[in-house]
């Protein structure tokens, strides 16, 4: 009996990687999934923070895909290593701060290391030629193959027939005839294949698999780097970019104003790392102050925060100002009039 070959599948949680893995399973390949967590992934997070999203619990689509396929899924934390990919992408950024080509090269390279360490034979991805402007352009697919080190052990079942035969095909581990030749942005062939396999209720993320394709998110990241004068971040920084309203009244400080209860609770966890503003006389947001502020600026920031409280139309609102070192003071301040909140403060 011939040896059962093993493939590691990059599972993003989207339809394409689900289909690619399913095609291999149907060809008798032992498939296990791998999912990389960069810190920017759309999966998870904010549904845990915002109350309105909690009513509709959000599943982790990578786990869901693995369950549909009946395969193991290994979720790997690459937060630290990914920093270099995002900060110094050799091939540059896409429409926003998404370094898709470098990201793909990095992830396939990590999958190659995992494959070698675990005695697997090849790697599969759900890439479709020409589907995404940056990482899936026809002329760029070979760049991923080459620079990741995966070489001909990288098989893309959904568009394999448009590409040169890879080792698994040449060796007869998989039947090339049963692979697909999808290309371009038309999603109908994938949807038809999903229907054939009986996959319904699959995820259809708009834009991409991570927040870096989102313009608002990217703007906040760029603002963070500009304000700090260096391209760097910690996990907490990138989490906070997903939470609250962000306003920068002056270059040296920014306010993160919670929008609802869930965010309030989440931001409370950061009270030791930031100076904070709490509205005491009315219902209102918790606000973090990112940056060093003078007493006068702290009070001005409190007037902005009060604008977002239920005391917005009151003559005076009582707020508690707490410095990072724990020093507290209660002050009464007039909320800033709506017309004085400048549009350009919003990041």
């Amino acid at each position: 009996m011939s040896q059962q070959r093993k493939a590691v599948a990059l599972i993003s949680g989207g339809l394409d990687s689900l289909l690619a893995a399913k095609m291999m399973i149907d060809q008798g390949i032992h498939v296990e999934g791998i999912n990389f967590y960069t810190g920017f992934c759309v999966e998870g997070h904010t549904h845990a923070i915002r109350k309105k999203d909690k009513a509709k619990p959000k599943r982790n689509n990578a786990l869901w895909s693995a369950e549909q396929l009946g395969i193991k899924l290994h979720i790997i934390d690459i937060i630290d290593e990914y920093k270099d990919v995002l900060i110094n992408p050799k091939h540059g950024y896409g429409a926003n701060m998404n370094p898709c080509l470098d990201c793909k090269i990095f992830m396939v390279g990590k999958a190659k290391q995992w494959m070698d360490a675990n005695g697997f034979d090849f790697i599969i991805t759900g890439e479709v030629m020409g589907q995404r402007p940056m990482s899936q352009r026809k002329d760029l697919l070979p760049v991923v193959v080459r620079e990741s080190g995966a070489d001909d052990r990288l098989l893309r079942p959904l568009c394999a027939k448009n590409l040169a035969a890879t080792l698994p095909e040449r060796e007869g581990w998989v039947n090339r005839e049963q692979l697909e030749d999808f290309s371009g942005r038309n999603r109908k062939p994938q949807m038809a294949l999903a229907a054939k396999y009986g996959f319904i209720d699959y995820a259809t993320p708009a834009g991409g698999c991570c927040f870096l394709t989102d313009k608002n998110y990217s703007d906040k990241l760029v603002d963070l780097w500009q304000a700090r004068n260096k391209k760097d971040y910690e996990l907490d920084d990138i989490m906070l970019l997903k939470v609250g309203r962000h306003l920068r009244p002056q270059p040296h400080y920014k306010l993160i104003v919670s929008r609802e209860d869930g965010e309030n609770k989440f931001l409370k966890g950061y009270k030791k790392q930031f100076s904070t503003i709490e509205i005491k006389s009315h219902n209102g947001p918790l606000t973090l102050v990112d940056g060093e502020v003078s007493d006068e600026e702290f009070r001005f920031a409190a007037r902005i925060a009060a604008r977002f409280s239920q005391g917005r139309d009151a003559d005076s609102v009582t707020v508690k100002l707490t410095r990072k070192d724990g020093e507290e003071q209660l002050v009464d301040i007039p909320p800033l009039p709506a017309s004085d909140i400048k549009q350009e403060w919003y990041i």
Binding site: K54, K58, W64
Partner: peptide
């Protein structure tokens, strides 16, 4: 994170 209530059991089932 209440998301763990669905994610950890899902991870357990597949593994």
């Amino acid at each position: 994170d209440p998301g763990a209530l669905s994610d950890i059991p899902a991870w357990c089932r597949i593994n």
